[in-house]
Design a protein around this nucleic acid. Structure first.
Lengths: 205, 205, 205, 205
DNA sequence: TATGAATGAGGGTTCATTCAT
DNA sequence: TATGAATGAACCCTCATTCAT
């Protein structure tokens, strides 16, 4: 349908601008201009500026949630699930500044929309937590709080939008492998007793 | 001096509001109101709204840089340096929403200020990279890109501002220990050959 | 075209207000009110307040320059040219307070616009200087600095906006005739030797 | 008295700034800064900004009026009176931008002050008119409206502040001589019949 | 389906002036 | 006599949104 195509085109223009300049610093005129339509026409396709942002973020989150759900509920071995989750999340974090939008622009949503999307992001995290629970059940994990582990994982990866440049020497593939290695095996060649001692020392500070 | 105290009070009010509503959605009138002064009086203490933001972020970054530099250049054992860096960064990430400000509001700085602070944050990351280089020189680290490792580390921790609540069941102490463990030892009880296989499988996707 | 007509209407309202109260003391709301539109609508038609002033002054200067150029480059006898220049300048000086705007509001232009219009006003003066040069070449003029003569001429006339009232007993026609007479023949019935002596006496003071 | 000296110093600073940037664009802080005092101290010496302007203009006008009155009421020959009036007026027009202040800043006075000074400037003009009347009575003048003649004279000279630069090739002495010559004898070597014809032609346009 | 025109509600900033000391 | 601090009132300009066509 033509109308929906136009909507998509506008959303893409808006997503790019929001990502570049932020929601607050993007004018509806900017968006209309970038989408090749008149400013007032925007209001034929969308109720208001916030709705535009909502639809953009909603799609990003929905897509991510679908992918991670598919992985989690598949019959793959646990290690593979973990690796795949990381891979698709890394891709999302880099691809088209989606992560930037997610991180920076959610606060511009209406309270209702914001809460709705937060809830779905909690589901997203829960998918990983479930995988970790299964690893834990198999007795393979260290005794760490799983929620913290999951957020540590997502934080490590999501943060990439702030520094990672795909044109640099580290390719996307390599990047996700490093993340995976750190998360699963740590940075040490062997598990070092010194590392454990350092933890204990922390308590004094 | 009284004037500088007032300035500090205003900065604190502004920091709180910027953190809650964002720079763009905070009115100079809001700030003045929260600081208990007239809107115009703000301009007696600060040149403009952006300067207020700059001073707030500059202090956060300067303080962090001082701390991390002190640690890196001390004569502590490497493991302890690593643990300490993580500890103070975790504290900063949670304390008074400073991380939120750093992540969300830097884009509202003037280009000059933004670049200046970016540079100092690069220095900050380099402190950790240096520690990692020394670990690598001692032959204790896996063969991973050190820049990626450093950002993975900071990402994992910095992300906490988005989900961590100090009032919850996981205390700050515990939190930084978990981060440290994950980063240094990974989440597995033993280094698992399955984890390595999963990495290889990734390449097919 | 309707939009251009509206622009003109706004310019006229603004010109009147600027002339009455000065640029600095005229609010954009004043202008909008006088033009029968909303304050914000002003910015639909003009980029900013300064542009409005620029367009007003530019038109005055352009029109004057066109007229004086036409006269100077025509094939009329020199005396007639001189008389005509004076006549149109007198008219401009009185008509709708244009001279008042030129004299008082140019300083509110942006540096670029101000310089541009200054340059065109120099051209304007040069038209008269050219005519005077031709009179000089014919040996009919006293040996006076022509630039000074030209500015004396324009000053005499332009000054009228400060005191002349068209409703008074001296009509516009008569006014320009008096100016012309003074400029070309002086105020004396015969060229008086006493006048020359007075000049010499000046040097003592 | 010290207080009056300080007042004078402030007035001079203000006069310079008003002349450079205009009354509206000069801050009371600008003035205080230029006079080397605190902004609030200004209000110890003057009631308000307008009073400052009033005193400045009042002095200019009073001084001028005194001089021209002295000349007019002296026992000098008429020609010399005329020449002297012109000389002192030319000096005033160039000296320290007084003319600029007079022309541009009177509109910023309060209505009462403005009217008062206007009245005194009318007196100023009347001094010249009186001289012209005496010339007329001696039968030496052309039959021209004397008010127009007086204003023509003052306009010619006053206008100089807009274009005349004392550093240029025409010296102040020469300048006032040229003005005097033009006013008394016109620009023509001999009184030309063609000039009169040109006047008649004007009536057709 | 699309647009030119219009607007209400601010937002950052400035400034003459005042006041307590 | 002087000052640091404070303020009310504007001012220019922007912007999301609406409306008539």
């Amino acid at each position: 349908m033509l109308k929906e195509e136009k909507r998509k085109k506008i959303r893409e223009a808006a997503a790019r601008l929001f990502s570049e300049k932020g929601f607050e610093n993007t004018t509806t005129r900017d968006i209309a201009g970038a989408a090749g339509i008149n400013n007032a026409a925007l209001y034929y396709y969308f109720d208001n500026k916030e709705q535009l942002l909502y639809q953009i973020l909603e799609e990003v989150i929905r897509t991510g949630l679908e992918k991670i759900t598919e992985i989690e509920q598949s019959s793959r071995p646990l290690e593979e699930k973990l690796a795949l989750i990381l891979r698709i999340h890394t891709r999302g974090a880099v691809d088209f500044n989606k992560m930037k939008l997610l991180v920076h622009e959610q606060r511009s949503l209406s309270p209702g929309h914001r809460e709705e999307l937060k809830e779905r992001q909690r589901l997203y995290v829960n998918r990983l937590i479930k995988v970790l629970e299964q690893l834990r059940a198999r007795g393979e994990m260290l005794d760490l709080d799983l929620t913290v582990c999951a957020y540590a994982f997502f934080g490590m990866v999501s943060w990439a939008y702030r520094w990672y440049r795909p044109e640099g020497k580290v390719k996307l593939e390599e990047l996700s492998e490093i993340f995976y290695t750190i998360f699963t095996q740590g940075i040490y060649r062997e598990q070092k007793p010194e590392a454990k001692k350092a933890i204990k020392k922390l308590k004094k500070h």
